[in-house]
Every structure is written in structure tokens, then in C-alpha cells.
């Protein structure tokens, strides 16, 4: 589904991604962990070109991602952000409806049916007419997930979806993501939630200083990492 080859990204003089190659298979849940500044969010943001890579190639569903087809590809790739980025001037329902209406050109009714169903799924149908400002962090993030799902994406990207939440709200958001994983959604999740990574991830990637240091199935990575840097990191966070 996602095929990354020799991806390099510079911010000015800093090389934040150093020759990354990576494949994500259909229905796979890949969890990326690593210390702050390791480049994991930047990598994720390169997948849908919110961040322009310096060199290297990205293919999504077999299509080479470039400027000409990026809007089309983005409709297939949902993204959830650390800071939710809901549209504050639109109601919860409108937030979820706007993508299908403006981008997919659905009718108002079709988009509304879809939005209501999705809000029900994330447990927020009662908040449909509220505005984002009146929601808690966990609720905002669940709306953001519904907004991304409304486009019926084939792949979901999660950029530290629980990092900006109060601890008691992390669970409700992770439950929604877990539910998606069980349905077979292809997902890449950047997270600091090690328990979640272990439980939901099919594969865990550990990044440090712009490189993939180690990858493998969660149990192996968490219980018997091969690399010293992975050990040091896991000792600190577990």
C-alpha cells in the first residue's frame, strides 16, 4: 500500500530523514516509535506530502506520489493530527461532512448520512450540532477521526493522536483506533503509547536521529531488542 524508497528530508542544514526505505502492506498496522526529534512525524507527513521530501520516492497503492496527483491521493489517505485541527467555525457534523461534499462532490444528504453514522461509531452523535470549542480533547480527536474516515480512505495516518490529551481521555481515542485496526484498516501510527503499540501494532518501527534503527513484531522489539539504542529508549519509556 505504501512504498517508500531512499527518502531524505532536510530542514535547512539539518538532515531529519536519512535514506528511509519502508513498505506498509494492506491491512497492516505499523506503529512508529522513537524519541522526540527522531523524524517519525516528519516521515508520516511526507507520505501525503504535507512535508516535501528532499529526495527519494513514495508510492501509494502503486501510484508514484507527486504534485500532479497529490489531491487525488490525499482523498485515499486519511490523517489525524496531534492537535486535532478541527475547523472551529463549523459544527461537529459540518466538520465531518465538508470533505465528502467539497472534495468527493457527494450530495448533502449522502454526506450527512455518512457523518451521522460515523459520529455514532465514535460515540458522539449527541454532539453533532456542537462546535469544536465546547468539546473535550478526547471528543475533538474522535471527531477528527470521523472527519478523516468520512472520505472513506484506504489508509489512515495518525500523528501522535493522543499526545495532546489529558491522561483520562487517551483510552477513548485509542479504543476508536483499535476498533479501526480490527476492521482491517491499513494504518501508520506515530505514538508514545507503548502499551498501544504492543497491543495493536502488527509491526513496530523504532526510529532515532532520522533513521530506522530497528523494526519487527512488537513482542520481539519490546522484549528482546537487538539494537543498543532501542534498548536504551525502551528502558526510559517503559
Amino acid at each position: 500500500m505504501i512504498k517508500v524508497r531512499n527518502l531524505v528530508k532536510h530542514f535547512g542544514k539539518d538532515e531529519v530523514l536519512k535514506d528511509i526505505s519502508l513498505d506498509v502492506e494492506e491491512k497492516e498496522v505499523v506503529v512508529i516509535i522513537g524519541p522526540s526529534g527522531s523524524g517519525k512525524s516528519t516521515l508520516l507527513r511526507c507520505f501525503n506530502k504535507l512535508e516535501e521530501s528532499t529526495s527519494g520516492t513514495i508510492e501509494i497503492q502503486g501510484v508514484h506520489v507527486d504534485k500532479s496527483n497529490i489531491n487525488q491521493i490525499r482523498t485515499e489517505v486519511g490523517m489525524v493530527f496531534q492537535h486535532f485541527n478541527l475547523f472551529p467555525h463549523k459544527s461537529v457534523l459540518e466538520n465531518v461532512m465538508i470533505g465528502p461534499i467539497k472534495v468527493r462532490k457527494w450530495s448533502h444528504e449522502a454526506a450527512k448520512d455518512k457523518a451521522v453514522a460515523l459520529l455514532k461509531r465514535v460515540g458522539l452523535e449527541s454532539k453533532a450540532d456542537s462546535y469544536p470549542a465546547s468539546l473535550s480533547g478526547g471528543q475533538k480527536q474522535r471527531v477528527a477521526i470521523a472527519r478523516a474516515l468520512a472520505m472513506e480512505p484506504k489508509i489512515m495516518l495518525f500523528d501522535e493522536p493522543t499526545s495532546a490529551l489529558d491522561p483520562e481521555m487517551v483510552g477513548e481515542v485509542l479504543a476508536v483506533i483499535k476498533d479501526l485496526a480490527q476492521e482491517g484498516m491499513t494504518m501508520v501510527v506515530v505514538t508514545h503509547e507503548m502499551g498501544f503499540a504492543r497491543e495493536v501494532g502488527d509491526r513496530v518501527i523504532f526510529m532515532d536521529q532520522g533513521k530506522i534503527v530497528e523494526e519487527g513484531i512488537p513482542n520481539t522489539i519490546f522484549t528482546s531488542p537487538k539494537e543498543e539504542r532501542t534498548k536504551v529508549f525502551l528502558d526510559k519509556v517503559l
Binding site: 501525503n48 504535507l50 489531491n71 487525488q72 490525499r74 482523498t75 489517505v77 486519511g78 490523517m79 493530527f81 492537535h83 485541527n85 478541527l86 475547523f87 465538508i98 470533505g99 467539497k102 472534495v103 477528527a144 472527519r147 478523516a148 472520505m151
Partner: peptide, 21 residues
């Protein structure tokens, strides 16, 4: 916030749609 543009673009909106809506 830059995140507003990013959220809109990540849904597949064009630059003009992002500005307008």
C-alpha cells in the same frame, strides 16, 4: 494556525478550496 490548512489539504481540498471554505 497552520494546522487548519494542513487538515483541509489532507482531506484532498485544493489550495483555493482551503482558502474559500
Amino acid at each position: 494556525d497552520k494546522g487548519q490548512t494542513e487538515a483541509a489539504r489532507s482531506l484532498g481540498m485544493t489550495k483555493v478550496q482551503t482558502m474559500r471554505y
